[in-house]
């Protein structure tokens, strides 16, 4: 497991495992994220896993005062190196698989036809391909609980809309190029909308404010409009 430590401003460090967006690199990110979740360093205030690296925020003053040093970055690196050295021998935690029910097409997925036409497929084929992908959440970012999901089959790759929509409802599942994603909050956006999930991705009042976390596997399951509405009622 190769890595590089880099200072990121005066209160963060980036642990870089590589440059390429590959599952093998993301596995290292995930291993460290799992470790930090269960064993946070006492100087760590937050961490952000990304595609090829993970950023840890620290409290320089706390470290300087508690360790009687003027070099908090060295303390952070030393702690990280000892953990990263052992981490290669730790087995990967099995990923959670989260089922995301999606009502495809119709009013919930106004761009299903666009995607089908662009790829010379029928609507049914698009739904089948999208719901059979092997998906991995690489990171959560951009906006609260927004998952960057990799693994969409290239057969349904579709460019963004030329003109973004002013408002896309929360729960909308979209495609942008080779990526698929879910809007946790209503927001403007240029993604091709293929369907909508009744699940709430952003739950600010919950212990776990984001339904998904980096490293989760995702399975999209087609549901009917009636099932979607029933789900919605159960949520209210």
């Amino acid at each position: 497991m190769d890595y590089q430590l880099q200072p990121f401003g005066d209160n963060a460090v980036m642990v870089i495992f590589g440059e390429k967006n590959e599952r093998s690199i993301h596995q290292h990110v995930q291993k460290l994220a799992d470790f930090l979740q269960d064993n946070p360093f006492d100087w760590m205030t937050a961490y952000i896993p990304a595609f090829t690296n993970i950023t840890l925020f620290y409290e320089p003053i706390k470290i300087m005062q508690e360790n009687d040093t003027t070099d908090p970055y060295s303390v952070v690196c030393k702690d990280l190196e000892s953990v990263l050295g052992n981490l290669q021998h730790v087995p990967q935690t099995p990923a959670n698989t989260i089922d995301i029910p999606v009502c495809y097409g119709g009013a919930y997925g106004p761009d299903l036809e666009v995607i089908a036409k662009h790829n010379q497929l029928t609507r049914e084929e698009v739904i089948r391909i999208h719901s059979q992908g092997d998906y991995l959440v690489y990171m959560i970012g951009f906006s609260p609980a927004f998952p960057y999901i990799g693994g969409m089959p290239d057969k349904i790759n579709t460019p963004r809309k030329a003109t973004p929509r002013i408002s896309i409802p929360a729960g909308s599942v979209g495609i942008a190029g080779g990526q698929t994603g879910i809007y946790p909050l209503a927001s403007p956006g240029g993604w091709q909308i293929i369907g909508r999930t009744p699940l709430k991705l952003f739950q600010p009042a919950s212990e776990k404010p984001s339904l998904l976390k980096a490293g989760d596997r995702v399975r999209f399951t087609p549901i009917s409009e009636m099932a979607y509405q029933k789900w919605g009622d159960a949520n209210d």
Binding site: I140, A145, S210
Partner: peptide
Amino acid sequence: RIGYQQFGIGT
């Protein structure tokens, strides 16, 4: 709001 950035929640 410190410590929720891994869920996309800004501070």
